[in-house]
Each structure stands twice: as structure tokens, then as C-alpha cells.
């Protein structure tokens, strides 16, 4: 039996987001919200483990009341229950405050039944920092396994999990102790096409909402007050100008290259 929590974030559909060139902020108005794509894979991973080892999957999201929709999506994919953390006092939280609040909620769940695994997406496609998962793990003192692209198995007796991490050009196979927090990449699994009974159950489900008063929180560590960082500017990096290809025989090409380097004063003329 595994007690699992999946952190899911409502993000604007980036396919439809534009950056306001004057204010350098994301134009979110009217852009439909979706479940952060990485988080969908996190839900799928947890549900697959539940099917294999038994247990319970709780979907957890911090956001405005409309974030209910991504929680229902998680329920449709097989999560057993959903908790929404919603409070005006949470607004404006940066990654530090967000991971603080989410960690507090996971602690509250842990008090009911001890949590074995927490799942996060690798990153949110709007904030893009990839800091929230590790932030939660650090606060809870959980084993931290990032960029997980495969879960080899869980040993319930030894309380261990073995995963494969996606590195730039290789995989790293590591074993860690439970409880653990995993951040996952899309290679981890294929998303299921939810069954109709699951969708109907999700549409009918009541979603538990927790406000700041339901959690053990220091008011100075949440929302804007608890957020030491702020986004000053968002911009697309300027496209790098294309390089120049020098064709011809190696000897000739080298001579041309040297001449150019001399000309631009990168090397001295001898």
C-alpha cells in the first residue's frame, strides 16, 4: 500500500499565451487554463503505482477556485481524492512560499496517513523554475529524485524505490529511501484515455478546499509577504545570429579562417 500525493498546477495554455511587449508580462486574460503537462504524467505515474501496489492517490493544487478543473482532470485519470489550497493570502507566492504552503498541506495529509511518495512535474510551463518540487522535498526531509523518466519498482518491505533519471546524454539508475519526492519528465509514461465511469465520478466528486486556517502556517512566509523574489521582466532571448560556414579544402578553409580571426582582432597577426 502506498500513500501518494501528486502536486498539480493550473497553467495557461502556452500555445495561446503572448507576452505584452510593453510591460514584459504574460498576457493571461482570456487564455484557457490547462493541467501542467508534466503534472499529467505525474498523476499517471502515481495511478500506475496504485494499480500495482495498492494505495491511495491524492491530487493537491494551490490556486484560485478555477483550479478545481485541473483537479477534476486528475480525478478522471484515477486520483482518489482532490484537495484545493485556495486563499487570498496565498496570492503572489513565489517558489519559496509555494513550496512552503504545499509542504504544509502534505504534512497535514501525512498526519492522517503517512505519505510515502510525492510527485511533481519537472517544471511548470509558465513559471518554468523547476524549484517547487525540490523545495517541498527539502522542507519535508524526503528523498529527492528529480527528472525521473522510469520507475523500476518499489520495495515495500525495505521501503525503497528505484528510478531512472534523465540526464543530458545518459540515464542514471538510483535507489532511494521512502518517503521520497519525484519530479517527472514526459518520457515516464503514456497518458491514459480516461474511461467514462472515471470521468463521471470526477465530474461528480466534491473537492475539499483548504484555506490558510486549515494549515499550520506562519503568515509571514506565505503570499507576497513570504516571497523574497519577484519577476521583473519576462522576455524571449534574442535569436542568436547564424554562424558562417567556410567551405573548401581544409588547408584553404583554415587560411580563410585565420585571416578572418586576424581581421576581427581575435588573434594577433604574426
Amino acid at each position: 500500500m502506498l500513500q501518494m500525493v501528486v502536486c498539480v498546477k493550473q497553467v495557461p495554455d502556452t500555445a495561446e499565451v503572448r507576452i505584452n511587449p510593453r510591460t514584459n508580462t504574460l498576457v493571461r486574460a482570456g487564455v484557457p487554463a490547462i493541467l501542467n503537462p508534466y503534472d499529467a504524467h505525474a498523476v499517471e505515474a502515481a495511478v500506475q503505482l496504485k494499480e500495482k501496489y495498492g494505495g491511495q492517490v491524492t491530487a493537491l493544487s494551490m490556486g484560485p477556485p478555477q483550479a478545481e478543473e485541473v483537479l477534476r482532470r486528475a480525478l478522471g485519470m484515477g486520483a482518489d481524492r482532490a484537495i484545493l489550497l485556495s486563499d487570498r493570502a496565498f496570492a503572489g507566492s513565489d517558489t519559496l512560499a509555494t513550496s512552503y504552503i504545499l509542504a504544509a498541506a502534505i504534512r497535514a495529509i501525512d498526519r492522517e496517513t503517512p505519505v510515502d511518495l510525492v510527485f511533481c512535474g519537472k517544471q511548470a510551463i509558465d513559471g518554468d523554475t523547476a524549484q517547487v518540487g525540490p523545495g517541498i522535498a527539502a522542507r519535508l526531509g524526503f528523498t529527492q529524485l528529480t527528472y525521473v523518466m522510469a520507475i523500476d519498482g518499489v520495495d515495500l518491505e525495505k521501503r525503497q524505490i528505484q528510478v531512472q533519471r534523465k540526464l543530458e546524454d545518459k540515464r542514471e539508475v538510483i535507489r532511494g529511501r521512502l518517503p521520497a519526492l519525484l519530479t517527472v519528465v514526459k518520457d515516464l509514461n503514456e497518458l491514459r484515455y480516461a474511461s467514462l465511469p472515471a470521468l463521471i465520478r470526477a465530474a461528480r466528486a466534491t473537492i475539499t478546499t483548504w484555506s490558510k486556517d486549515d494549515l499550520d502556517l506562519d503568515p509571514a512566509s506565505i503570499g507576497l509577504k513570504g516571497s523574497p523574489t519577484s519577476v521583473r521582466r519576462i522576455f524571449a532571448p534574442p535569436a542568436r545570429p547564424g554562424g558562417e560556414l567556410i567551405p573548401g579544402e581544409p588547408r584553404q578553409a583554415a587560411a580563410i579562417l585565420v585571416a578572418k580571426l586576424v581581421q576581427t582582432k581575435i588573434i594577433a597577426d604574426k
Binding site: 484515455y193 480516461a194 474511461s195 467514462l196 465511469p197 470521468l199
Partner: peptide
């Protein structure tokens, strides 16, 4: 009948 598994209503 819908196109999903268990899709009859």
C-alpha cells in the same frame, strides 16, 4: 454510446 471505455449511458 460514447467513444470511451465503459462508455454507455
Amino acid at each position: 454510446r460514447t467513444g470511451r471505455e465503459g462508455g454507455d449511458v
